[in-house]
């Protein structure tokens, strides 16, 4: 299963490191990543593959929610099909 993680918030050091560490500890593979600063806001979009993770989708999401509230970021994880469906015919 593939999922997209979207992280937005105030730019500060270590955001990317913290999220990728968490993802790799969960045995998810990062397949694509893009990161920009838009009007002072950090925006990172990451595509991951969860198929080898021992954790369920909900557990991975909980972990990301924890990082989000600790680091005052907004982090979303959504299955990739939703974007394909909505934006591509």
């Amino acid at each position: 299963m593939k999922a997209i993680i979207t992280t937005t918030g105030k730019d500060k050091t270590g955001i990317l490191a913290e999220i990728t560490r968490y993802i790799s500890d969960a045995n998810c593979n990062v397949e694509d990543i893009s990161q920009t600063i838009m009007q002072g806001n950090f925006v990172m979009i990451m595509m991951i593959d969860l198929s080898r993770s021992p954790l369920g989708f909900a557990e991975i999401k909980e972990g990301l929610d924890e990082i989000a509230s600790r680091s005052e970021l907004s982090i979303h994880i959504q299955r990739a099909e939703i974007f394909e469906q909505m934006h591509h015919v």
Binding site: I45, H76, Q78, A80, F83, M86, H88
Partner: peptide, 16 residues
């Protein structure tokens, strides 16, 4: 491949 504009548009639809 899904582009970042589309991803952010969907996220905004839900969030805001």
């Amino acid at each position: 491949m899904i582009n970042s504009k589309e991803i952010l548009e969907t996220v905004r639809m839900v969030d805001a």
